[in-house]
Design a protein around this nucleic acid. Sequence first.
DNA 1: TTGTAGGCGTTATCAC
DNA 2: GTGATAACGCCTACAA
Lengths: 330, 330
Amino acid sequence: MADVAREVGASTITVSRALRRPEMVSEGLRQRIAVAVEELGYLPDPAARALASRRSNVIGVLIPSVTNNVFADVLAGLYDTVGGTAYNVQLGNTRYDTQVEEDLVRIFLSQRPAGLIVAGVDQSPASRRLLQQAECPVVQIMELARDPIDMLVGFSHRDAARAATEHLLDRGYRVPAFIGARMDPRSERRRAGFCDAIRAADPRARIRELTTNEPSSVRLGGALFDRLRADAPEIDAVFCNNDDLALGAQFAAQRAGLRIGPDIGICGFNDLEVMSAAHPAITSVRTFRREMGEIALQRLLARIEGADDPSEAVVDLSWRLEPRSSTDRG
Amino acid sequence: MADVAREVGASTITVSRALRRPEMVSEGLRQRIAVAVEELGYLPDPAARALASRRSNVIGVLIPSVTNNVFADVLAGLYDTVGGTAYNVQLGNTRYDTQVEEDLVRIFLSQRPAGLIVAGVDQSPASRRLLQQAECPVVQIMELARDPIDMLVGFSHRDAARAATEHLLDRGYRVPAFIGARMDPRSERRRAGFCDAIRAADPRARIRELTTNEPSSVRLGGALFDRLRADAPEIDAVFCNNDDLALGAQFAAQRAGLRIGPDIGICGFNDLEVMSAAHPAITSVRTFRREMGEIALQRLLARIEGADDPSEAVVDLSWRLEPRSSTDRG
DNA sequence: TTGTAGGCGTTATCAC
DNA sequence: GTGATAACGCCTACAA
């Protein structure tokens, strides 16, 4: 930076300002500095910047899994939105473990991040406290809650699951069951939504379900489906906790010689691209994952840039049921 | 850090040493420092550290896409391996654009990263030069090449595709076609492998193929399959550039009333979990994506920690054909 | 609009 | 094995 300053005959601080707050430097000087920066190939040192300003350009993102399609889409939204800005997304993988999450919160905070995005609303009390006291804005994503730490962008998993189950009942299925894997807090809420709908239809109905904490997969969906049918042959529809399971259930049903739709209704959750392309197409609940990443980051940046956010602290992205052949009894 | 030093009656530099190079500090002092660090909840400031040591704990990773399953798996391997170390993975999304990649290389380099991982071997000349001159170790992943920038962990896409196509021919399919989307350099090499096998079987054979630069998806696989069959009804097998396309082709074939295997052979690439769970199960070429991330990072860390790497600079992870019902003519 | 002085928290260097 | 001193490259605060 000193080189650039010498080149244009100004002081380093002026160069610094020309770079970060161009409006504070006169037109001509700004131009000459830009040229010199280009010529000398000067690139600011983020470490020095962070040390001096006591504030880094890091946006910390805490999610439970990198592979899970759901979070992959959120990440795509985040990276798309952060591209071109001066900020850097830094990922922390909590592996569905609130203790790991807490450690990561501490580590991230030690970097004085510009902002933080955390998945879910079930942080440990310590994490919550740390985040509340944090000097940077914080956005929780994926879910809705009454008491956000700061900002929140999500939707109600419970309502969405209730609507999906009501859809099964509306379509004439009498004995829908629930299939779930990787029962994290969001999965539990979906399960609760399923129960809501079943009980609303018949308060004394038995809840038929099969859940596991194993990570979900297509294969597991098939295995759970087979096992559930062996135990409860009367079921005529399944609401699956996510699309991988639904796809696996459909394959298993096909193997068993069932007609998808007439013999067995299948509904997934998230509406991955494959659901509409499958044969037959599978009913699912569309969620706005990429948008969640985009909007969360937009809000965060707005707050970082000092906007006295006039907007709501909570954004409900909702969801949309996508009825398809797999729940068409024909 | 000054607080910790005061607490144990030592100087800051000693605390610094106790943290980074414990063997340089006497047993007793080290213990007392550890206790004080714990008590005071001291966390080192990565920015100050990077500034003073002229070297950050960032491991830069440049990949073309965050959503693509293939890279998601590589990332999972990376994050798993980096977890627990003192290093931080920082992602750069090149969006399949070498110019963006070049910009990101410059930005990453300005952070004095501990190491760099880049996807592919088709960097721009400028990127290549920058990376060669970089002071940190560099690993290219995903592919094999004769002239790695530094280290390399990958496999031959061309060989893998050739083997897949030979498998189709061995199984008795006479007119295999190629379906490809998002024709990046690796896809092109797979296409070349397909052509190798076809020409080896019959030098005068016409190459039947349908490719597009659109991002791949299940739906697109179905559309390409239908279009290809309309133009060339004689085809009796398809080698798809990736598993999404293969799954879509299978759904489309089922819609058209074809028997998968007997009437039409289908082969994918990467062997995502869904392939073995599908109905019928789909033949694919298994690739070791997670392992690629793990090994790339292990090598990088070994070099960073100063091991005079006795190991090869190039690791060939190879691939494995997984024959299934979708290429069984019965 | 521009410049000066001082310090951000850590580590390299060189003594002891 | 331990400590004093001087950076590292930039920014905040204040002054001109």
